[in-house]
Design a binder for these strands. Sequence first.
DNA 1: CGTTAGCACTCATATAAGAAGAGTGCTAAG
DNA 2: CTTAGCACTCTTCTTATATGAGTGCTAACG
Lengths: 343, 343
Amino acid sequence: MAVSDRAQQLLKLLVERYIREGQPIGSRTLARGQGLELSPATIRNVMADLEDMGLIKAPHTSAGRIPTVQGYRLFVDSLLTVKPLEQSEVRVLQDKFSGAVDPQQVLVTASSLLSEITSMAGVIMVPRREQPTVRQVEFISLSGNRVLVVLVLNGHEVQNRMIHTSRRYSPAELTQAANYLNHALSGKDFNKVRDSLLAEMRETQESINQLMLTAIDMANRTFQGAEEGGDYVLAGQTNLMGYAEMADIDRLRQLFEAFNRKRDILHLLDQAAHAQGVQIFIGEESGYEVLDSCSVVTSPYEVEGEVVGVLGVIGPTRMAYDRLIPLVDVTAKLLGAALNQTQ
Amino acid sequence: MAVSDRAQQLLKLLVERYIREGQPIGSRTLARGQGLELSPATIRNVMADLEDMGLIKAPHTSAGRIPTVQGYRLFVDSLLTVKPLEQSEVRVLQDKFSGAVDPQQVLVTASSLLSEITSMAGVIMVPRREQPTVRQVEFISLSGNRVLVVLVLNGHEVQNRMIHTSRRYSPAELTQAANYLNHALSGKDFNKVRDSLLAEMRETQESINQLMLTAIDMANRTFQGAEEGGDYVLAGQTNLMGYAEMADIDRLRQLFEAFNRKRDILHLLDQAAHAQGVQIFIGEESGYEVLDSCSVVTSPYEVEGEVVGVLGVIGPTRMAYDRLIPLVDVTAKLLGAALNQTQ
DNA sequence: CGTTAGCACTCATATAAGAAGAGTGCTAAG
DNA sequence: CTTAGCACTCTTCTTATATGAGTGCTAACG
C-alpha cells in the first residue's frame, strides 16, 4: 500500500512535533499547529491510514499518536530535511579538536564533544589494529636483571614489556640482539624467526637467544590480544538518565551494563563500519534488546583515506535526527583530520 | 547524656534489623524478633530516649525508627561485632588475584572483585607516582625523521613519546646522546641539566642537543601531569542502581557524574590514605553532598610496607558493615601482596 | 468523492473520601 | 521500672467520581 503525499506530509509534521514535545500528538493539535488547511476530522482519517500501515500508533485509546519504528524509518529515509551545520558551528568544533595532541586524547575529546553538544552519550570506536607488524624491537637494560622490550608496531604504535632475565646482559649484547632481530623480522614471518631461533639454541645454548625468543613471544601475544576485538571510548552516559523515556531504572541499568560489557555495542559499531556515511539504527533495528528504546547515529571516520573506526551518538529514539546527522557527519570528518595530523 | 547499656543493645538490634530489612523498625517488631524479654511499651520508652539523643529517627509519625548517621556511627564504632572471613572465603579471594600479572590488571581485578562480592561499587585508587625521577632515557630511531623517546621512571614505569625531528639521526648519534643524558641525569636536577645543555648549544650549535632538550622537556611535562593527582579504577557502578534508596534518578545521576568527574572521590580516598586500617564514612560524614545517602568503606593498601593507595566500597548507608569491613580489610592486604609480586 | 461537523465512547489522570494498618505517646496500674 | 490500654496520627490502599483529551463512526455538505 502506497503512502499518499498528504499522508507523508502529515507523518513528517507529526514526527517533528513529537520529537520536539515528546508527547503523543492528537489530530486537533496537528491541525492547529502548522498552517494546515485541514480539519481534525480529516486528519483523523489520514492518521487511521497511517496507523493501518504501521507507521504510527496510539499508546492507548485516547491519547494522540506517536511514530513507530517504521514511522521513524520512513521519516529519516525520505521525509527528513537536514540543514547542514553553520560555518560558525563547524569552526567551534574545529577549535575543540585543535587542543589535543596524542591520538588517544583526540578520541576522548571527540567523544565528550559529541556527548556535550547532543546531551546524549557519545561513543567512539578506537581504531582496530590492522594486522599489526613488528618492524622494530629494541632492548633497554634496566637495573636488576630486568630488560625493557620496546616493540614498535606498524611504525607508529609502541608497546613496552618488562622481562626479568636470569642473568644480566650488557648494553652491547642487547644492541646486538636487537639488530639481529630487526634484521630477521624484515623477513616478516614470526614463527619462522622463532623456529630458527629455537634450532640455533639447541646448538649454541646461547642464553641471549632465550631473551630474543621471549621478545618474539611477547609480540605474538600482543597480536592475539589485538585479534579479540577493539575497544571504545564512551562519554556522557549520565546524560541518558535525563530523558523521560529512560525513566525505567531497570532498563537503564541493563543499558549501562551493556556499556560495560562492551561486546554488543562493539558489534553494532562494527556493522556500521562497513556502511559508508552516516547510518542510523532506530529502536529495535539495532538488534540488541537493551537498545530497544534508543537510536544510534553513526558514521565511520577515515585516516589517510581508509576507514579506521566508527563514531556515533546514542540517545532516545525521539532524538533530533535533523541536527544529529550533520553533526555526526562533520565530527567524523574532523576526527579523521585530527588523527591524520597527530599520527 | 550517656547511652545506657540497654539502649545500646537495643540500638544494635535495631540497626542490624534495619540493615537486613530496609524498612523502619517499630517497637513491636523489635520486641518480637529477638529473644527480648521486654514489652513493646518499654522499648518505646527507650526508643524515645534514643531519638532524643539523635541516634534514631522516625521518617513520619507512624512509621518505625531508622538509624541516623550518628546512630550508624555509634553502631559501627562500639556496637558492631565483625566476624572475620572464613578461611575458605579468603582462599577464594586469593584465587581471583592469582590470575593477573601486570599491576594495572591487578587493580582492575580487585575492583571488580569488590563490586561483585558486595554487589556495590568497588573503587581502587591507583598508586600515585611518588616524586618521579627519570633514571634512564633511551632514543630509538624510527622511519621518517622520527625518534621514539623512552623514559624509564623510578626504575619500573615506562613512558613513550614520539618526536619529529628536523633531520635524521643515526643510531650511533642517538646512543651517544642517550649515554650523555643518562650520565648527566644521575646528577638528578633537571633544570641544571637543561641549562647546561642550553649553554652548550649556544657555543656548538649542535642540533643533537636540541633533541636532548626536547627529551628533558618531555620528562618535565610528565612530572607536571603526575602532580595533578591520581586516578582510580571503578567497577560495578551499575550495582548501585539496584538499591531502593537510590531510586531517585536525579541523585543517582549526580553520583555518576561525580564518578566521572573523579575529583571529589579522589579527595575522599586521599583522606583515607592517611588513616590506617579500615575507615568508614557514613552518609554526610564524607563531606560530599553527592554521597549523602551512601557510605564508603575504605582501607589503604601497602606495597613493600609503604601505603601506596586506597581501596574501598561505595554503597547505600544501609550496608552490611559487619561483612564489608573484614572483606575490605582482607582485599587490601591481598592487593598489596599481589602488587608486590608483579612489580 | 473528499471533507467536515457532531456525537457517543474509551481511557488516562486527577481528586476526594473512606477504610485499614502500623506505630506512637501518654496515662495509669502493677 | 515495667507494662497494658487507648486515643491519636499518618501512611497506604481502595473505591468512587469527575474531567479532559482524543478517537471512530455516521451523516451531511459542496
